[in-house]
Design a protein around this nucleic acid. Structure first.
Length: 158
DNA sequence: TAGGCCATCTGGTCCT
DNA sequence: AGGACCAGATGGCCTA
């Protein structure tokens, strides 16, 4: 859905904004939500971190970049999730909310399949979460023992 | 054109 | 102290 052009355009917009910002905002001016309440909040924050406006700007850019990277990681995780949940609309990308909803339903159906196959050896799936999760974990521990615990746990959870 | 979805920016809060 | 995380705001693109 997010085409290459769109990505490029966003990058350009970002650069443009950064240029605008770098034209030294006058001290105390507020670009967003310029209310009094808001500016006093910001004054407090600035008192807490008494950086020069150049320093502040630099730190802002750095945390923007970190936030962008974080969101990219999150989106990669969403993509990985999309690839493992079966769905009908293979031709177009699932939205995030669809991905989460489908994943939840998929887990539920797999759980009930396991329950059926195990013929009641596992506790009921009702009110899953805690009890069921810990039973599954116990089951996992019995299968793998304690030696290379961390490595297996990593594999198990990923 | 309205509404859905998304990326990005931002300031606040939590965590290490 | 500084980075991670979060939620609100904003604006762009796409589709019905």
């Amino acid at each position: 859905k997010c085409s290459g052009n769109q990505f490029l355009q966003r990058a350009i917009t970002r650069e443009f904004k950064e240029k605008l910002l770098s034209e030294e905002e006058p001290e105390g001016s507020e670009r967003r939500n310029g209310g009094n309440k808001e500016s006093s909040k910001i004054a407090t924050a600035r008192a807490k971190h008494p950086w020069s406006s150049k320093d502040r700007h630099l730190r802002r850019l750095e945390s923007n970049e970190r936030e962008r990277q974080r969101m990219h990681k999150l989106n990669n995780a969403f993509q990985a999730l999309r690839e493992v949940i079966p769905h009908v609309r293979a031709e177009n990308k699932l939205s995030k909310i669809e991905t989460l909803t489908l994943a939840k339903n998929y887990i539920k159906s797999l759980t009930s399949i396991i329950l059926n196959m195990s013929n009641g050896h596992f506790p009921a799936a009702e009110g899953m979460g805690g009890a069921w999760g810990s039973k599954m974990y116990q089951h996992y521990q019995q299968q793998h023992g304690d030696d290379d615990h961390e490595e297996h746990l990593q594999k198990y959870s990923t």
